[in-house]
Design a protein around this nucleic acid. Structure first.
Length: 259
DNA sequence: ATGCCAGGTAACACCTGA
């Protein structure tokens, strides 16, 4: 069977509900990883999503962060904590097993700006925790997919102006090295398996006409374990939602697995 | 160098985002 998985930072699920519902109907993904819900679990528009045939698991937080997993299959073995960081109360990570065989994670990696603050050290520490957790997860040889908003610009060609972001947390050598370390665990970037063109973006700022000028960043990724990468048949970035009214500043990244 | 835009919260301004 074919499973289509997508990740999308929606920048408030309540503000974005009409856009999300329209895209789910149009794109028909089987599994969706959402980030930046900006609401507690009780306020997530669960019914509206369930009415489209999805099972829903949320890990929300008031005002900030929040992640969710939607699946046309039941969601099993849901976990909502990234180990380590005992005092970390941000809702930025959850994982579940879908279709009885694919373990997926929805990730909202800390932004880390501005440099020289505890926000940047929190980002780097969070990335170290993520790597340790992935390392443990990958050991079982199962099909795994780690998708989300990684908040890292890996290469200069993944941003409209590397110069403009030189002092940004997303592009620091420390951030990039940690992202490479994730890839070096043996993960495959689903989008880059099919598209090696420069200047392919998943985010465009609301400000300064960034969308109209195609001033974007590539920061949303679907990273696949070797077993999932073996099943990968296609991937892409769906820019449609970014051009709609009341759009999120991110657009969905998707892939298809034949399992 | 700074704000631009958008969302949430709480209140009619400020914080966060990337």
């Amino acid at each position: 069977m074919k499973i289509k998985v997508a990740t999308w930072n929606v920048n408030s699920i309540r503000a974005r509900l009409p856009n999300v519902v329209a895209w789910l109907k149009e794109a028909q993904p089987d599994v969706v990883l959402l980030q930046e819900l900006k609401c507690v679990d009780e306020n997530f528009p669960r019914m509206e999503i369930e009415d489209l045939g999805y099972n829903v698991a949320t890990h929300g937080q008031k005002t900030y962060n929040g992640v969710a997993i939607l699946s046309k299959s039941p969601l099993e073995d849901i976990e909502t904590r990234l180990p380590g960081g005992d005092s970390d109360d941000h809702a930025r990570y959850m994982e579940a097993t879908v279709f009885g065989k694919l373990r997926v994670a929805s990730i909202y990696l800390p932004n880390g700006n501005p440099l020289g603050t505890e926000k940047f050290t929190y980002k780097l520490a969070w990335m170290d925790r993520l790597k340790a957790h992935m390392e443990r997860g990958l050991a079982d040889g199962e099909m795994r997919l780690y998708g989300g908003d990684y908040n890292v610009i890996l290469k200069d060609d993944d941003v409209y102006s590397a110069k403009a972001f030189a002092e940004d947390a997303l592009m620091q050598p420390e951030s990039r090295a940690r992202f490479r370390a994730l890839l070096n665990l043996g993960l495959t970037d689903a989008f880059r398996a099919f598209n090696s063109l420069p200047h392919q973006y998943s985010y465009w700022d609301y400000q300064a006409g960034a969308w109209q000028k195609d001033h974007g960043l590539l920061i949303d990724f679907l990273l696949l374990s070797p077993q999932a990468a073996d099943a990968l048949t296609n991937a892409g970035i769906d820019k449609g939602p970014r051009g709609k009214e009341k759009a999120s500043d991110h657009t969905p990244v998707w892939c298809e697995l034949e399992v």
